[in-house]
Simulated assay, not measured.
Amino acid sequence: MAATLRDFVQWSKKPAKDVDTATTPNVNLLRGLAARATTPLLPDDYLKLLNPLWSARELRGEIVEVRGETEDSATVTIKPGWGFSAQYRPGQFVGIGLRVDGRWHWRSYSLTSVPHRDDKNITITVKATPEGFLSTHLVHGVKPGTIVRLAAPKGDFALPDPAPPKILFISAGSGITPLMAMLRSLKLRGESPNVVHIHSAPSTDAVIFHDELRELEKEQPGYRLHLQLTETNGHLDFNELDSVVPDWKDRPTWACGPAAMLDTAEKVWQDAGLQDALQTERFTIARTDKGGEGGTALFSISDKSVEIDGATSLLEAGEKVGIQMPFGCRMGICQTCVLPLESGHVRDLRSGDEHGAGDRINTCVSTASGDCTIKI
Rank of each mutant, 00 (worst) to 15 (best):
V268M: 06
A260I: 03
G291V: 06
A255C: 08
V245I: 04
N239D: 15
A260C: 00
D237T: 02
E266M: 09
G273M: 13
Q279I: 06
D289I: 02
K218W: 03
N194V: 14
P221N: 09
D250L: 08
G175L: 04
D276T: 13
R189N: 12
L216Y: 07
D289H: 10
D247Y: 01
L216R: 07
R189Y: 06
L186V: 13
A259H: 13
K267D: 12
F238I: 15
D263H: 09
S185K: 10
H210S: 01
S302G: 00
M180T: 01
A172I: 00
E219D: 09
P258I: 00
S302R: 00
A172V: 00
M182F: 10
A265V: 10
G294M: 09
Q275E: 15
P252T: 02
I208W: 02
E240T: 13
W269C: 03
A259M: 10
A286K: 15
A272E: 12
D271E: 15
I208Y: 01
K187E: 13
N194Y: 12
S200R: 05
A297F: 04
D205V: 10
D205L: 14
T264E: 15
R224C: 03
E231A: 13
R184H: 09
G175H: 06
S300L: 05
D242N: 15
L274Y: 12
T264V: 14
M182I: 07
R224W: 00
A277C: 12
L225M: 11
T284M: 14
